[in-house]
Nucleic acid binder design. Structure first.
Length: 155
DNA sequence: GCCAACGTTGGC
DNA sequence: GCCAACGTTGGC
């Protein structure tokens, strides 16, 4: 499954933040859902494509293209007792949550969620299903190619 | 801020 | 193992 959509709240980590980071790479921290964690742990491969999605903001949508830049490793925030992602049941010997590194690749035209809903080729996207809240979801190659074409469209 | 939908927890 | 209650997500 080589393509993924990953949600980030831009107030926390925006696509521009990733572009501005060293090596245009950040750790994807804070996933606290087992299904999303399992995608990172069991299925992601270095080099997989990522649609970097902005959620919980004025205009949610795909903000850019990124790629998986590392294998899975323990999410450091689960051990930080002062942080909001602290998990008292996680220990370094038995971590519960994991991160992968994500590298920004390409920023094109912003593709709002409302536009995505109007594109027939995207109607089966996990993101667009009623009640879907998964922060990491698989994307088919057809969906990926459709979205890439929109992102690269000239205004 | 509202609220629908979903995931998790915990009593039984 | 069931399921009600609660907490969270996330668009609007």
């Amino acid at each position: 499954m080589p393509y993924w959509l990953m949600k980030s709240e831009p107030d926390e980590v925006s696509f521009d933040d990733v572009l501005a980071a060293p090596e245009q790479t950040v750790a994807w921290f804070g996933v606290r859902n087992y299904q999303a964690r399992n995608f990172m742990r069991d299925q992601m491969q270095v080099g997989d494509g990522i649609l970097f999605y902005h959620s919980s903001c004025a205009v949610p949508g795909v903000a850019g293209i990124a790629e998986v830049a590392s294998g899975p490793y323990p999410d450091a925030t689960q051990f930080d007792s002062a942080g909001k992602y602290f998990d008292p049941q996680a220990t370094p010997a038995q971590p519960r949550w994991i991160s992968v590194d994500v590298r920004a690749k390409e920023k094109g035209r912003y593709l709002p969620l409302s536009d995505m809903r109007a594109i027939p080729a995207l109607e089966d996207m996990v993101l667009l299903q009623k009640g879907s809240r998964l922060s990491i979801s698989p994307v088919t190659s057809g969906q990926w190619n459709t979205i890439l074409a929109f992102i690269r469209e000239q205004r």
